[in-house]
Computed example of a mutant assay.
Amino acid sequence: MDLILLLKAAIMGVVEGLTEFIPVSSTGHLILAAALLKMPGEKIKLFEVVIQTGAILAIVSLYAERMWSTLAGLPRGDRVAVRFTANVSIGFFPAALLGFLFIGPIKAVLFNPLVVASSFIAGGLVILWAERLQAQGARARIEQIDDMRWTDALKVGLVQCVALIPGVSRSGATIIGGMLLGLNRRTATEFSFFLAIPVLFGAAAYDLYKNHHLLSRADIPMFAVGLVAAWLSAWVCVRWLLRFVSTHTFVPFAWYRIVFGGLILLTAWGGWIDWTP
């Protein structure tokens, strides 16, 4: 058993868990981490997608009561359960369709550190703009997830498509997009959590189906370590984030994105760090 490889898998899992649900781009951080750890190849790209399911398990476990009440209510035709499921499905569809059609070219062309760094900076500027609108008195019209209409879910789902560009951040696109579309900060954050369930499970299942030939039994420990590390770190991060958004803005994340993206571009331009995996 390669202990160094397992340690790298654990680091990648922690990076995934800590960045999946905050607006800083987990995919972007994983691409950068893989470059620094020198973990190249198609198998690592598959690993990066699959360990996202570990982060989703954190959402399922933290919102188990809501998940169960929804599953129990659907056969009875419960209006809240049906509306919630419909909204998540509608929000999921646009990114699922575009991802299915274009994920190959996206991975081939855009999955590189310089694209990630540029997206970090652009996303940070968008967050600052959105928070400035909030500070100027923009009022939320939706206070609860169950108050969302199907049109609200569709709009958030369309915004989520931008996150197919690595470095943009799926959570950032859906949370900030949701706020700009009238959701309050906590509702936008929680709807982003729930949208992640079908999006990331679907992406992992599709990637496994397309690339299962890359795997062997020897890869099981690496994937298992990455999944568990992602689950535990995401569980901690989500609990912290829900407390954070009740009293803080996303401005610190915006400046983190801008500074980190600038550092990546500067070190790449100066030749101080080789960001190629």
Rank of each mutant, 00 (worst) to 15 (best):
F120V: 09
V14I: 14
P166F: 04
L242I: 11
A135E: 15
T53P: 00
D207R: 13
N184V: 04
K43S: 06
A130S: 11
L263A: 07
P105Q: 11
N87S: 14
W235A: 05
E190N: 08
R257N: 04
H248D: 12
S233R: 02
V49C: 13
A203T: 08
G54W: 05
G123H: 04
T19E: 00
V116G: 12
A96M: 14
S119C: 06
G261Y: 00
I145H: 03
F100S: 11
L208Y: 10
Q134H: 13
R141T: 14
E131S: 05
K107P: 03
L227Q: 09
L62Y: 13
A140Q: 09
S169Q: 04
A9Q: 02
L180E: 14
L32E: 02
A95D: 00
I273N: 04
F111V: 13
T53Q: 01
S26Y: 04
N184D: 15
V50W: 07
A230M: 09
D152M: 06
E65M: 12
I142E: 02
R149Y: 13
I145L: 15
D2M: 00
L62N: 08
E131Y: 09
S118Y: 11
T187P: 06
A33F: 01
L62W: 03
T19F: 04
L57S: 01
R83S: 13
V24D: 05
A268F: 04
L242N: 00
L181V: 06
F244I: 09
S69K: 10
S171C: 04
G17C: 02
K45T: 00
L241N: 07
G182E: 15
A95Y: 09
I258L: 06
R217M: 10
G137W: 08
K8A: 01
C161D: 09
L265G: 09
V251G: 05
R76V: 09
D78H: 07
F191M: 09
L214V: 08
V199P: 03
L128M: 00
F93W: 11
P23C: 02
A230H: 12
I197G: 07
L62V: 06
G91P: 01
E131V: 10
M67E: 03
E16F: 11
L32M: 10
A173I: 04
Q136V: 10
K155H: 10
G77M: 05
E65H: 15
I44Q: 02
P23G: 07
I121Y: 03
A173D: 03
A224S: 15
H212P: 02
Q144W: 14
A135C: 05
S69A: 11
L62M: 15
G261N: 07
W255P: 03
Y256I: 11
A229K: 01
K210N: 11
G167F: 00
D274Y: 01
